Amino acid sequence: MIARDLMNSDFPYVMADADLDYVAKLLAECGLGAVPVVDDDLSPIGIVTRSNLEQARNQPLPDLGAIPEFLLRNRPKPVFHANGRALREVMTSPAISIPDVAKVPDIARIMESHSLKRIPVVEGHKIIGLVLRKEVMEAMKGGFPALALEAHRRRPLISIPQQTGDRCALATAEEFRDLVTAHERQLELERAERRQATTELRDQRIRELASQRLTDAQWREMLEQARRSAEAGLAEHLLIRFPSQLCTDGGRAINAPDPLWPATLRGEPADVFQRWRNELHPRGFRIAAQIIDFPEGMPGDAALFLMWSAARN
Rank of each mutant, 00 (worst) to 15 (best):
I206D: 12
P243L: 01
V136W: 00
Q218G: 04
C168P: 13
A289P: 02
R109A: 14
Q218M: 11
K126F: 01
V90T: 00
K117T: 15
A302F: 05
A171F: 14
F285W: 04
G142M: 03
P94N: 03
P68L: 03
L189G: 10
D5T: 10
E69Q: 12
K103C: 14
T248K: 02
E150C: 09
N58L: 15
A151F: 01
V122N: 09
A139K: 08
L214C: 10
A34V: 03
A3C: 04
V37W: 05
A18I: 12
H125G: 13
N313G: 11
P36V: 06
K77N: 10
D178V: 09
K134S: 06
G33R: 07
G250C: 00
N58G: 15
F294I: 00
A66E: 15
N58K: 15
S211H: 12
D293Y: 13
E29F: 10
V48Y: 04
T164I: 12
A108H: 05
I127D: 07
T172L: 15
G251R: 00
R57T: 08
E268P: 04
L304H: 07
R252V: 07
I45A: 01
W308A: 07
P78V: 05
A263M: 03
L61P: 12
L246V: 02
I254Y: 09
G46F: 03
V35D: 00
V79Q: 08
S51L: 11
P36T: 03
R286H: 04
C247I: 01
M298G: 01
Q55H: 08
L170Y: 11
I45G: 05
H114Y: 10
F70I: 12
F70G: 08
P269L: 01
E29K: 14
I45M: 01
D100G: 02
P259A: 00
V14I: 10
V131Q: 03
Q290V: 07
L87P: 04
A235M: 05
A24V: 00
R185V: 14
K103T: 14
D19Y: 07
E174V: 06
C30G: 11
D178Q: 13
T198D: 14
R154P: 05
L234Q: 04
V79F: 06
H152K: 13
L132C: 08
R109C: 10
T172E: 11
P105W: 09
G33A: 13
M111P: 03
V101S: 15
W308Q: 06
R312C: 05
L306D: 02
S51I: 11
R118W: 06
G250N: 03
Q212H: 13
V101P: 05
W308L: 07
P60Q: 00
T198S: 11
A28K: 11
R4P: 11
R133F: 12
D17I: 06
T215V: 05
P282N: 03
F11E: 09
L64Y: 12
K103R: 15
N313Y: 08
C30Q: 09
G65C: 08
M140C: 04
A146M: 08
F285L: 09
